[in-house]
Structures are given as C-alpha cells and as structure tokens.
C-alpha cells in the first residue's frame, strides 16, 4: 500500500481540540495540505491541539512546520476517544530567524487514532503551526 499523508482533512482527519484560536487562523489550516495557511496561538503556554484520524492508522514519520516553537511534545492515543495518551517524542527546536521550522520525526512505526501536540514553550509570545504530516498507512478495519 502506498504511503500517504494521513493528517489531511481531505482524507477525513480533523482537529478535535485546540487550546486557543483566532477565527482568521483556525486550526483546520494545520491539516489542509498547505504550508501557506496556519494556526496561531493567542497567548500563554502551554498550548495544544489534537488531530483525530477517525480510524486506526500506522505511522512511520511525522513532520511539523511551525514558527517560534521552542519545546514540543507529541503524544499518541489508540483509544476510541481522545484519552490515555502516551508520549511519542519530545524535542527542543532550534530558533530559525525568518524561516519556518521544519521538524521531521522518524519514529519506529506505531499505531494511533489520535495525535496530540503540546507546545510547552516558545521563542516569542505567539507561535504559528503551518502543517502537520503523518506518513503511513490506514489500517484495514
């Protein structure tokens, strides 16, 4: 089976929780397949969002494009509801003046129904998240 971006809203994925939002820069922008559109946080940290695949998927690589994020934690859940999250990875990102941060996480293949991204701290008062991509395959149910 061909590996694809499982996060795309056009494939049925959805952002089901977000801790802050500006209606001009909604969280849907994270999974619309474009790095030109983005979601902004609107003050204070930590901030988080949860992506639901609405099914079980097998993920081998995660990529996030964002700006001014300092400390990021990614968690996964295999539950039917967004509970019982386990830590996937945690990383301090580099400051990239005037350019998007593109961070790839090559992880041992894992299953998930939800992914949770927690921005614990930042290089400024606000951050933007432009895309999240999860490469892998949808499980046959």
């Amino acid at each position: 089976m061909k590996s694809t971006d499982l996060c795309l809203s056009s494939r049925g994925s959805e952002v089901v929780l977000v801790t802050s939002s500006d209606e001009k820069y909604p969280p849907e922008n994270i999974i619309d397949g474009s790095s030109e559109t983005f979601w902004t946080t609107t003050g204070m940290f930590p901030q988080e969002f949860i992506i639901s695949f609405h099914k079980c998927v097998k993920i081998s690589k995660l990529t996030i494009q964002c700006y001014l994020v300092r400390s990021l934690r990614i968690e996964k859940s295999l539950s039917k509801n967004p509970v019982d999250f386990e830590v996937c990875t945690e990383k301090d990102l580099q400051y990239t003046e005037g350019a998007l941060q593109t961070e790839e996480f090559s992880l041992p293949e894992f299953q998930a129904t939800y992914l949770r991204f927690i921005i614990k701290s930042a290089f400024d008062h606000f951050v933007s998240v432009h895309t999240v991509m999860a490469e892998g395959v949808a499980e046959n149910l």
Partner: peptide, 17 residues
C-alpha cells in the same frame, strides 16, 4: 501593546511563506 505585538507577529507568520 500586547494586541499590537500579536498583529505584528501574524504579519511575520504571513511573510514566511
């Protein structure tokens, strides 16, 4: 002041792409 900072930051986010 904080609102102005937000507006400026959003402009920066736009300019990145």
């Amino acid at each position: 002041s904080f609102h102005r900072l937000y507006r400026e930051k959003v402009e920066t986010f736009h300019s990145l792409v």
